[in-house]
Each structure stands twice: as C-alpha cells, then as structure tokens.
Design a binder for these strands. Structure first.
Length: 482
RNA sequence: GGCCCGUUGGUCAAGCGGCUAAGACACCGCCCUUUCACGGCGGAGACAUGAGUUCGAUUCUCGUACGGGUCACCA
C-alpha cells in the first residue's frame, strides 16, 4: 500500500488560474511518474464565494490540457465524496474526535467579542490572536451551552509552549514557537470545516501521500503538523511552490486579464504550449531541452528541479514557445487551427491550404492571423512611398518601368501557378540583368498594397489569381502615373 | 510590526567549495532571402551587500538591504 496518491484541490471560484494549473500539473506529474493516482477534490467550504458553474470550468480546463484524474467528483472513486460540502458530516465527526483527544475545544465566543478583542489587540500593538477565552471551559459548562443550543465553533488547541517542526521537501525543516500559533477555528458555526481542517482530514482519509500547494500555506503548515500529531496520523510529504508573478511586486492576478487558462486559449495560444511554458516557471529540467509534451514532462519531472523563489511570467517567452509549437504542427493541423482566423478578414474563395502554408512560419499566436491576410479580398489603399526601397534600389520611377514590363508578361501566362509565374518573372529579371528585388518588390507592393505580406510577389499573385493580379497591377500603374 | 521564506544577465534559469559562471526568450550585428518571417552564425549582458569559515567562496555561517508570504468562522 505504498501507492503514490496526489491531489489537486481547487476552490470553485469561476476560473482556473495559471498558477493553479501549474500546481495541478506538478501534482499530476508526481503521481504519474510514480505510477500513482491523481485525485481531484473540490474545496467549496466557503459558501459565500461559491460560483455557479465553476466546477465545470475546472473539469473542462483540466481535461483540455490532459490532466485526467483517477478519482474525483464526476468519476467517483473509493474515497468519496470528492466535494467537501458533501463531506460535512465527516468533518464534524473528526472535529469532535479531536476534542476528545485533547487537540481541540469548543468555543462559544461570538463575532462581536472577537472583533472587539482584535481591535483592542491591534490598538495596543499586539499580534491579534484568539485569547483562548473558551479553552478551559469545564465539560459541564460546555455541555450546558451545547444543550442550550448556543452557536459554537471548534478551535485547535495549540500547545502553549515548546516548538513545532514541520518538514517540506524544498525548504527542509521549519521550526516555529508554538506561542506564535493561533488557536485557529477548525469547524465553523455553519458546521463546515475551515480549509486548514478539511485539508488535514481529507488528505488523511483519501490516503494522499504528496501535497503540492502554493507557498502561501507555508506559514500555517506547523499547525497542520500539530493536527496530525493530535490525531496520531502520518503526515504526507509537503512541497510548497512559489507563486507566479506579474512583476517583482505583484502576483499574476485575474485582474491582469491574462491569468486564466481560457484567456490564453481565446487569444490563440495552443494548450500544449501553455502547459509547456508554465511547467518551466519554477521548475527546470535536467538537460537543456525545454520543449516537452505532457508525457515527456511526466518522464522528466523531478521535485529537485523546483525553485524556491518566485517566477515572473514572461508573455514574450510564452509567445515564442507558442510559435515553436505552431511551426511543429503538421501543415494540415495548422490549416485547421488557422482557418477560422483567416476567415475573419479573408472571405473570398482562396486556397486556404496555400495561405496557411505561408502563415505557419510567420505566426506565433493565432490571433495575429487576421491582420496578416486582410489584403486578399481587397487591396487596401496605400502610400506610394512603399515603392521606395533602398536595399532593392527601387523608387517610383523604377516601379513604373518595371510594372509596365511585368504586366504583359503576366497577361501572357495561361497556366497560372507558382512555377510558371516564377519562371516567367525570373526570365524577365534575367533579360533585364538586374537584381530580383528590383522587380519583385514593386510587383508585391502593387498587388498587395502592404509593406509586409506573408509570402512574396509570386505567392501573393498565385493566391489572388490572374484576373485580380492584373487588375491590381493596372490600378497601381495608374496611380503611379498620376 | 511579529513570525516564515527568498535574492545568478531585462525575464525564465543551470550551478551544489576550485568553471573562461551553461542554455532559452528578448536585444544587437551578420548570413540566407522576392518583403516579413523561418533558419544559420556571432555579440553584449549576472552571482544584492558587508563580515566570517576555508588554501580557495556564486556555492557554507551571520548581519544588512531589497522582495515575497502569513498573521480570518477565505482558501
């Protein structure tokens, strides 16, 4: 029974943060590399923050990136239920058990008293902590209040002195004075557990062996150790990972508009590229390779590669990596992805496969596509200054001269395809004894009206066809004459 | 503020007492080339800081600075 079992335990807040996704990824890799199980658990004990449909977002995202769970709310398993609100009775039972074991106690303080206490403590410059008012209530007093139906919480009974040491794989042993630890609430008035308690109970009951979670839990970790000790349970292996930052000061947040997985998908990023990129934030593989598929990530993943310092999210690097993934796609696959984007600005009857082929090496994010192909349907009006190109040694005069020579050549072509176009134009270039660009630059400008195009004069001419090419040539020549 | 944690080029990062301190993105230059890309070659750029330990510190210890986390009946 040494199977590795890890879990991803998000709160249903309506979207899946990139940082959460990365935690899930690391968690998944640890389990899968060890041939173990990856479990999904929904932590919805805060009813006030519950967002309708949020669970579906989590399922959808995890499935989209390929992080399939072996046990979870919708797939079942032997340790269910996997949604915390459905485990309500379990927490109550264990909280009461902990009271019996001496690791917790009933507290009847109401929120007004607590608020007052906190205000006084803050005013006098003391760290706000529960004053343990109910810690030493006699069993009779407790029973009387309970019988009277007084609302209560159950709090952790932290030792008054001594120290607690907990172990993290990355940080090693961390020891704190028990006197700095608060008697935190374990079971809330509404009967639901707090995160800290639910985690301990669930991780134990579900047989979780490794816990990967955000660094924000590091400070409360010793309290977990105390809880495990009080129950007499074995602690899982803890791995606290640092945050993903927007910059040195700020975490990557929802408000930045690009903190959620779905935002990136909507912007034209590939799922595989996103996963690959975030894997490299706060973790580094052994060798120098950095392109990894999910199966390769599982193979390569090792806890020792995790970093203890925060990583700043670099949109530029994600973009570059996305470009790499796009280039690695088969032409057919890329065309499939690209078509809807091409169609946004290019409605005509063109050879989509040919356009896609030109686009593939020039696209880092799919959303860049519409602007690149907006001239196929209709030539934009353009500035004649485009004909002036120092490197090509072209200007308005040379352009007229060249275009007038090219026009009849094109008119004579009957079999309009790349090879014929290429041969015809290069014959002309040979006859004229000049550089390729001297001819091809003005032609490209004349039929595209753009400074940059995917593909050159020949590619563009082939795609828009003979009639359109000739018509654009004539129009441009006309413009140049005036 | 108390407690906990971190600090290698602009960014991601390798490094685990002795190296000309990797690599990637970005940047610059050159080449390829019918534009732009792609691809190829090359360049600039870093161990926060002060002590200590040591024959020798980026690497170990302490202080300082800076940054982060946490101090809820939120997770």
């Amino acid at each position: 029974m040494n199977e590795v079992r890890t879990r991803f335990a998000p709160s249903p807040t309506g979207y899946l943060h990139i940082g959460g996704l990365r935690t899930a990824l690391f968690t998944y890799c640890i389990a899968k590399k060890a041939g173990g199980k990856f479990i999904l658990r929904i932590e919805d004990t805060d009813q006030e923050r519950y967002v309708e449909g949020a669970n579906e977002v989590i399922y959808r995202t995890l499935r989209a990136v390929g992080l399939d769970w072996d046990e979870g709310p919708d797939v079942g398993g032997n340790y269910g239920p996997y949604i915390q609100t459905e485990r309500r009775g379990i927490y109550k039972e264990y909280a009461e058990k902990l009271v019996e074991l001496g690791g917790a106690y009933y507290c009847f303080c109401d929120k007004e008293r607590l608020a007052e206490l906190k205000a006084v403590q803050e005013a006098s410059g003391v760290n706000p902590m529960y004053d343990r008012h109910c810690r030493n209530l006699s069993p009779e007093e407790v029973k009387a209040k309970l019988d009277a139906g007084t609302p209560y919480v159950i709090r952790q009974k932290v030792p008054l002195d001594g120290t607690t040491t907990f172990h993290d794989v990355l940080y090693g042993d961390i020891t704190v004075e028990n006197s700095t630890l608060d008697d935190q609430v374990l079971l809330k008035t509404d009967g639901l557990p707090t995160y800290n308690f639910a985690n301990v109970v669930d991780d134990h009951l579900m047989g979780i062996t490794h816990v990967v979670r955000g660094n924000e839990y590091l400070a409360s970790a010793p309290k977990y150790t105390l809880l495990y000790e009080a129950f007499g349970w074995e602690e899982p292996v803890y791995i606290h990972v640092e945050h993903i930052m927007r910059d040195k000061q700020h975490k990557l947040s929802k408000r930045d508009g690009d903190a959620s997985y779905e935002d990136f998908i909507n912007k034209g990023y590939l799922s595989e590229a996103i996963v690959n990129y975030i894997a490299l934030l706060g973790w580094s593989p052994k060798g120098e390779r950095e392109i990894f598929s999910l199966p390769e990530l599982i193979e390569e993943f090792d806890i020792s590669g995790l970093s203890k310092s925060p990583a700043i999210f670099d949109p530029l690097k994600l973009k570059a990596m996305n470009g790499e993934y796009i280039r690695a796609l088969s032409p057919e696959k890329f065309a499939e992805y690209a078509e809807p984007y091409i169609r946004q600005t290019c409605k005509g009857d063109f050879d989509i496969a040919k356009i896609a082929a030109l686009l593939q090496p020039r696209t880092e994010v799919l959303s860049e596509i519409p602007d690149q192909v907006d001239f196929f349907d209709e030539m934009p009006s353009y500035d004649l200054a485009l004909y002036e190109n120092k490197k090509m040694k072209t200007n308005l005069e040379t352009a007229i001269e060249v275009l007038e020579k090219v026009l009849p050549v094109l008119e004579n072509i009957t079999d309009w395809n790349f090879d014929v176009l290429h041969d015809s134009l290069f014959n002309l270039i040979g006859e004229m004894g000049i550089k390729n660009g001297y001819v091809l630059w003005p032609v490209r400008v004349a039929i595209s009206g753009k400074q940059f195009t995917p593909g050159g004069a020949i590619e563009v001419a082939e795609i828009i066809g003979k009639d359109e090419t000739l018509s654009r040539m004539k129009r441009s020549i006309e413009m140049l004459r005036n």
